[in-house]
Design a binder for these strands. Structure first.
Lengths: 145, 145
DNA sequence: CCCCTATTGATAATGATTATCATGTTTGAT
DNA sequence: ATCAAACATGATAATCATTATCAATAGGGG
């Protein structure tokens, strides 16, 4: 997602970029493709805004998600993670390695057929999330030993 | 999932079926295809075991999940839900209606191609979960008004 | 420069889940 | 059957992530 587009969305939402919010947004931009928890964002963002509080982090992450600047998602560990949006389609494809916990993004989009089918049945598809649980090539080797 | 198979898994795990555990398991069997939270299971199961405690419900749900008698899953609301396993493949396909919250199961399995691709790259695919966010036909009508 | 409103950080409150522990129950060896 | 040992339970405390509260503060428009 481009700075231009981010700016546009913040403006539409009448959202001022304070130092703290800037720090949070910077962290998210510096971690494109990663899926950060609120605590992780706090730890990083404090390097720029040392007395940033966790409440502000949550507030900012939720607001940015509501502007569709960030995705808010949840994996099986049961807590929220955030990631900067990369496209207009809100599609998330992830592979989670069951051994090392690494979360890898994949690009393929094979779901349009399924969604067309649902739309044919009267559904209005808004978004989807696909998570694949796997052992990544490295861990696969280790596990076999 | 058949009673036969459930029994087999409990036996393999040396898991005694006490009254309380039986009550929890019964609730799960009576609600095939539904995705119950621990609190919901507790409320139902207390009809059979009136002074059942929430801790026992959690313990039982987790154990049954570890035996692959139940699936343990998480949606965007951020809490765990459980469902009795219906097949050997551990595949969950859900459509969540964004208006009424209804969770509908779908049967299609269009992901084998994608998984083959990942396996070609050295991954070992263990499981997957696909969630589609949509408005169901009824809510779609209401939303449009 | 001052007032007004938005924002912040600290902290309390909440909700879901997990851990602890004293008590009660089952099991299996005798 | 008896009894010790292991297991299971319910109540409740502890924990973890998140949200709400609130007094203090910061910034922008006049």
């Amino acid at each position: 997602m481009t700075d231009r587009l981010i700016w546009q969305r913040l403006e539409e939402g009448n959202y001022r970029l304070t130092q703290q919010r800037q720090a949070v947004l910077d962290v998210m931009k510096e971690n494109r493709g990663r899926h950060l928890s609120a605590e992780e964002v706090l730890a990083e963002a404090r390097k720029k805004a040392p007395n940033l509080g966790i409440a502000t982090v949550y507030r900012t992450l939720d607001k940015l998600s509501s502007f569709e600047v960030l995705y808010k998602m949840v994996f099986d560990e049961g807590k929220y993670r955030y990631e900067i949006c990369e496209d207009e389609h809100h599609r998330h494809h992830h592979v989670i390695c069951l051994s090392c916990g690494q979360i890898i993004e994949i690009e393929e989009d094979l779901l349009s057929k399924l969604e067309k089918h649902l739309e044919g049945k009267g559904f209005e598809v808004v978004d989807h999330q696909l998570i694949i649980y796997a052992n990544c090539p490295d861990c696969k080797k280790k596990v076999k030993k």
